[in-house]
C-alpha cells in the first residue's frame, strides 16, 4: 500500500506539473508578444501552485514511508537534485514576479527565468530518470521533450484562437485531448518503470510507522483530490486574457 501512495503522488506530479513545466519551456514559441505570453501564463497560473505541491507531498511520503530510499535517492543524485531545485526556484519566482512590476524589460527578464528554469527542471528530471533506468544519459533530452509535448497538449486544451493553433500545430492536428492522454500515459509509464527499478519494498519504513501513516494518508487522499478538483472545476474554462501573474 505504501508503494501505491508514493506512486499516486509521484505520478500525480508528473502528469499535472509536467504540463505546466512544458508550457513554461515553450513560452517563447507559444507567446510571441508580451501580451500573448501573459495569456499563455494565465493558462497555467491557477494550477502551478497546486501542481508542484504533489512533488512536495511525494517527497514527504518518501521521508515518512521510505526514509532509506529518500537519503539514497537524493544524496546519490546530489548535483541533479541541486539543478532540479535551482530550476524549480527560478521558474517559480519568474512566475510570481513577472506581473508585479510594469515595464517590458522586467517582464522579459522574468519570462526568461520561467523558460530557463523550466528547461533546467525538465532536464534535471531527465538526468534523474537516466540514473535510475538503464538508459544512456542522452535520453534525458527525450524526457525533457516529453514534458514539452505534454505542455503543448495542455496549452491546446487551455487556450483559444491563434495561441491554441500554435500549440496544436506541433502535436499534429487538432486532437489535443488525445495528445494529452498519450503524453500523460508516457509520463506514467516513465514513472512506473523508474519505480520498478527502485528497491521500494526493501527500503520502506518500520512496520509501526507504516501502520500509522498508511491509513492516515489513505483517509486523506479523497480530501486532497477533492480540494484539487475544486480548482480544476473553477478554472475549467479556456483562458482568453491575462490573470494576476
Amino acid at each position: 500500500m505504501e508503494i501505491f501512495i508514493l506512486g499516486f503522488f509521484a505520478l500525480g506530479y508528473l502528469i499535472l506539473a509536467g504540463a505546466d513545466i512544458g508550457v513554461g519551456m515553450l513560452l517563447p514559441y507559444l507567446g510571441r508578444t508580451a501580451a500573448e505570453r501573459r495569456t499563455v501564463i494565465a493558462a497555467i497560473a491557477p494550477f502551478f501552485l497546486g501542481n508542484e505541491v504533489w512533488l512536495v507531498a511525494a517527497a514527504g511520503v518518501l521521508a515518512g514511508l521510505f526514509p532509506l530510499l529518500e537519503g539514497e535517492l537524493l544524496s546519490g543524485n546530489y548535483l541533479a537534485v541541486v539543478a532540479l531545485l535551482v530550476g524549480w526556484v527560478i521558474r517559480d519566482m519568474g512566475l510570481w514576479l513577472r506581473g508585479r512590476m510594469p515595464g517590458a524589460r522586467w517582464q522579459t527578464f522574468w519570462d526568461g527565468a520561467v523558460v530557463g528554469g523550466s528547461w533546467t527542471l525538465a532536464l534535471a528530471w531527465g538526468v534523474i530518470f537516466t540514473q535510475i533506468l538503464p538508459v544512456p544519459i542522452v535520453a534525458a533530452v527525450m524526457v525533457a521533450l516529453l514534458f514539452a509535448m505534454h505542455g503543448l497538449a495542455f496549452a491546446g486544451l487551455r487556450l483559444t484562437g491563434e495561441l491554441r493553433e500554435r500549440a496544436v500545430r506541433l502535436t499534429g492536428g487538432s486532437g489535443e485531448g488525445r495528445t494529452y492522454a498519450l503524453t500523460a500515459a508516457a509520463l506514467t509509464a516513465l514513472g512506473v518503470l523508474a519505480g520498478a527499478d527502485l528497491d521500494l519494498a526493501a527500503s520502506a519504513a518500520d512496520a509501526t510507522t507504516l501502520s500509522l501513516l498508511v491509513p492516515v494518508t489513505l483517509a486523506l487522499i479523497p480530501f486532497l483530490v477533492a480540494a484539487q478538483a475544486w480548482v480544476w472545476w473553477t478554472f475549467r474554462a479556456r483562458v482568453t486574457g491575462p490573470s494576476y501573474l
Binding site: 514527504g60 521521508a63 515518512g64 510507522t209 500509522l212
Partner: peptide, 10 residues
Amino acid sequence: GNVFGAALAI
C-alpha cells in the same frame, strides 16, 4: 526517518 520522517510526511 521512522520517527522524524513521519512528522514531515504528515
